[in-house]
Design a protein around this nucleic acid. Sequence first.
DNA 1: TGATATATCTTGTCATAATAAGTAGTACCC
DNA 2: GGGTACTACTTATTATGACAAGATATATCA
Lengths: 250, 250
Amino acid sequence: MKPDKDSVISMSPVPLYTQIKEILRERILNGTYQAHEQMPSESDLIKAFGVSRITVRQALGDLQKEGLVFKIHGKGTYVSKPKAFQSLAKLQGFGEAMASMGYETLSRVISHKELLADKVIALKLDVAEGEVVAEIRRVRYLNRSPISLDVTYVPKSVGERLAKEDLAHRDIFLILENDYGYSLGQAELQIEAVLADDILARLLQVEEGAPILRIERLTFTADNRPLDYEYLYYRGDAFQYRLRIERGHL
Amino acid sequence: MKPDKDSVISMSPVPLYTQIKEILRERILNGTYQAHEQMPSESDLIKAFGVSRITVRQALGDLQKEGLVFKIHGKGTYVSKPKAFQSLAKLQGFGEAMASMGYETLSRVISHKELLADKVIALKLDVAEGEVVAEIRRVRYLNRSPISLDVTYVPKSVGERLAKEDLAHRDIFLILENDYGYSLGQAELQIEAVLADDILARLLQVEEGAPILRIERLTFTADNRPLDYEYLYYRGDAFQYRLRIERGHL
DNA sequence: TGATATATCTTGTCATAATAAGTAGTACCC
DNA sequence: GGGTACTACTTATTATGACAAGATATATCA
């Protein structure tokens, strides 16, 4: 029944439209579809993948939301300029964001321990002060250069499970979502500029006193419970945080 | 054939799912559907509006993207906590943001001139390279302490009008919206950490080499034309940029 | 009683199909 | 030659129908 054309694995638990989306994303990133004007029409894709229109449209619609393509009514679907002004206020892990732009990242876990929540962490994670929480420190690399130090706090139970995961290659966000079934919702960010102290300087291979982008991020599940509290220290010279925000109407 | 139940105007040029989305949004805002657990099921909405499931799902999906509702597979669709949390990544000027927190701000215009757009500015403001644009430099104070240097680029015509305004006490955003009738839409932000050079150090009364939060902001009107391009240099020790973002699902 | 099975809610995914509407090229008529 | 109408593309919208899968309460059986 299911014509497995073009390497779509229909028995996979991953939705068809997601598989197609990933295939198309790959083709955009590797240049099969060049910027501007490209992309086969919906009916071409229907024939190529042997799926229905609704599936193709959902895949293309998702890519459009991610900013990789845009559509013009009556003309077709086009590949966006790789300009990278994507990530419109989208909550992404570092690895996710880089991977979606075609970069490879690596993390090095420098510590993973349990400690007692202080007042701030208890408040943020909505646990009692003194309760045990997990702290994970990772240095993240992009093209072998250190980019950031991530200090992550999660509830004890989550931390225990994460201890068994391959944090060097996988994003915590993706593990939480795909493996643990958490549905991530909003996040609160707080951004400021600081100077590198000796520890940061050593880990990120910059001079002491170099500019550091310090981001505090509290991530909530879809039902608004805090799940993940992080301090991210980005090298100021190597990373820019881009986002798109809207003027609040409503 | 089209059962115009519940005031859906089927002959309108507005898509059905958009009409339904607006009706549901209205009900969420006016409290017909209260926070958490509410929202009729999809089949209820199908019967109530007399439309197909795909239409209801598109309406709910859009509302989910806007953050007003969230879904739980197998359980239902829920209204997100409204109020305060709704201001996810709201675009506002510095003065606005501070005023809403009860602080008073003051700006000092240190220069206001016209110049020829270089390549970057021309690209951002979507004008021809070499075209005349206005540049406004302001130092912003909070409690008599300098907080930021704002370098603003706007088209020549807007700059000429702004020259007559009281920029010391009024936000450019508010002038554009309230006096000039522009409707502001999205903005693209780019945030990075830099070190203060001698000019910044003098203007912001910090040491040379102090951490500076550098924000590049391109603001669009509601119909997506670039209107205002700014570089904002915030003192790292005196300001934090807070926002709330969402995880893009669907 | 307690564990299991079942029925029935819900949302998620996918197929097929019809009509509308925007775009652009072509053929036709004046 | 130039304007108009037609046609053949495209995406946009909506409908109907089916089955999958998560959640939950109920009923059943050991």
